[in-house]
Write a protein that binds this DNA or RNA. Structure first.
Length: 303
RNA sequence: GGGGGGGUACCAGAGCGGUCAAAUGGGGCAGACUGUAAAUCUGUUGGCUAAGCCUUCGGAGGUUCGAAUCCUCCUCCCCCCA
């Protein structure tokens, strides 16, 4: 069991706000290490388009969960939760403070609050259900769910194929209703968690997004995506910055248009992230440049 | 100079006498979200003292009980002929 003096500092915020830099500085201050909670920076083949920390930054502070997976690997939040918890046990052995940075809200929450246990989905079942959806449409999924798990049917977003697919998948593999197993439990972690949100006035954030996308293109985004073209069907590549370039490589749109689309979709992504983080009032919000304020806040809170 | 087409909400683009504050798409804004999550999905998008009222469909007049829709003039744009 972890010592309660141990603290996990969570740094969250919308994409391109400046989380990486801030986390590195804070990590240096506490002489600690960084756990990344970014569902796309996990993949070794995706670097430019995911704005991974560069080699110099990686050398400055030890990072975990950056590029540890291949786009061909199957991964999910639950695995992330387990791996992070294992790692934390080790890290807290030598540090009182560990920093977790990232923009993937679900992944952050899985670490902070835990996530219910479900068996891993069987790939065959998953593709079977997907086939039904593709062949017979969402209405068929709705009917299936209505019969198997009316309770969940009553509360899900009935138009969201992913949700329906997942619920059906769980019902079929466990033989039990999804709604009965989805406890929304709140695991008690043996360490303190302090959450810091980083944000900027919207116009400024959006400027940074535009600038960063241009930079990605200069660094060779198109080539990176081109090399991944054969694997475009993989889930990891259903990602902003990649799908738009695929459209360009398909000659559906020109480069300029693709770049514009990436910027637009990134702005939307940032908005969705903010919506997620604003769901709770657990975050103390700062601008990324307010390092002193952040440090003071953390010091007063981590005592 | 002659002939033709057209100017509709942030943009594109339907509508072509009432059921039009105006389809649809894009963009914007807001939201949902426990295993594909940078994914997936939803709502909203003229104004207001909001089941009502006010101001909108290039501009000005006119016809009509009634006009984004018809007529006249003006204006701007596009295409064809010279």
């Amino acid at each position: 069991m972890l010592n309660s003096r141990k603290t996990l500092i969570v740094i969250a915020g919308p994409t391109a706000v400046g989380k990486t830099d801030a986390a590195i500085k804070l990590s240096k201050y506490w002489n600690s290490e960084i756990i990344s909670a970014d569902s796309r920076q996990f993949f070794s083949e995706m670097s430019i388009g995911t704005a991974k920390p560069d080699q110099q930054q990686l050398n400055e502070v030890k990072h975990h969960f950056i590029g540890q997976l291949s786009i061909h690997d199957y991964y999910n939040v639950s695995k992330f939760e387990n791996e992070v918890m294992q790692l934390l046990e080790k890290l807290f052995g030598k540090h009182d403070v560990v920093i977790m940075v990232g923009g993937s809200g679900l992944y952050i929450d899985a670490v902070c609050k835990g996530i219910d246990n479900f068996p891993d989905p069987e790939p065959e079942l998953r593709s079977f259900l997907k086939g039904i959806y593709l062949d017979e449409g969402i209405v068929k999924l709705q009917e299936m769910l209505f019969h198997i798990d009316p309770e969940y049917y009553a509360k899900v977003d009935i138009n969201n194929p992913n949700r329906l697919l997942r619920a059906l998948e769980v019902c079929h593999t466990t033989g039990k209703k999804f709604s009965e197993q989805r406890l929304n439990s709140n695991k008690n972690r043996g360490f303190r968690i302090i959450k810091v949100g980083l944000n900027l006035p919207r116009p400024q954030l959006f400027n940074r997004i535009g600038f960063r996308v241009d930079q990605m293109v200069e660094k060779g985004l198109v080539e990176e995506v081109q090399n991944l073209l054969p694997f475009r069907h993989l889930n990891a590549l259903n990602t902003v910055g990649y799908k738009e370039i695929f459209d360009f490589l398909d000659s559906k749109i020109n480069l300029e248009q693709a770049i514009e689309n990436i910027k637009t979709n990134t702005r939307r992504y940032a908005k969705r992230q903010l919506t997620w983080f604003n769901r709770t009032d657990e975050y103390a919000w700062f601008e990324p440049s307010e390092l002193n304020e952040i440090t003071n806040y953390l010091l007063s809170g981590s005592k």
